[in-house]
Amino acid sequence: MRVVVADDSTLLREGVVRLLEEAGLEVVGQAADAEELLRKVRAHKPDVAVVDVRMPPTHTDEGLRAAREIRAELPEVAVLVLSQYVEVAYARELLAESAEGLGYLLKDRVADVEALADAVRRVGGGGSALDPEVVSEMLGRARRDDPLGELTPREREVLGLMAEGRTNAAIAAELVVTERAVEKHVTGIFAKLDLPAGSEDHRRVLAVLRFLDQPG
């Protein structure tokens, strides 16, 4: 899998590159700002672009904007956004149209080699990866018209883990239940959210979008 990494901090960028190469991924380009990132992505057409949110010149949300530009221009390139802070508002912006091939993780996660490589592979394969912090913030909110109100607490939990990008097997391990039980919950969630029929992967992504599409 071919990857482009963008981060203005050389120390962190080199670290991420090293970790990804250790995990057997091919880093085809590095960028220190959004402009360079777009240039390298257009040139290399990688499978995944790993993008830091804060980059020069304003150090605010250049990475986010670049990520959206890549999504619009080259939909086949998956984007994994890394951020010093994860904010639900950013996640919703990023995933507004589709959660396919998109990830949004706390930057701290790069310290966990396995988790980072796993997230890159997942979004590269058309899946999604949402940071557990975003998920817990979404679940932590009180709402009057909760579109997920019909879900049982267990189903909400499963949906949250789905949003993080976990497989049924991983969810089963996390919740200490059988994979069969998780499959049952997933089917229940699809039914309650009234998701259109389709491939299991596609429906999972739709469920995550529905999850993110809540007001607040």
Binding site: T60, Y85, A89, Y90, E137, G140, R141
Partner: peptide, 30 residues
Amino acid sequence: ARGIHPAVLTDRGLAAALGGLAGRSPVPVE
């Protein structure tokens, strides 16, 4: 760092920042 100044407040404004604040609160906040 977030306590000193939340970046999302500058970047996206009050609604986005309050959404995060509400989500992190131990008491459910609407």
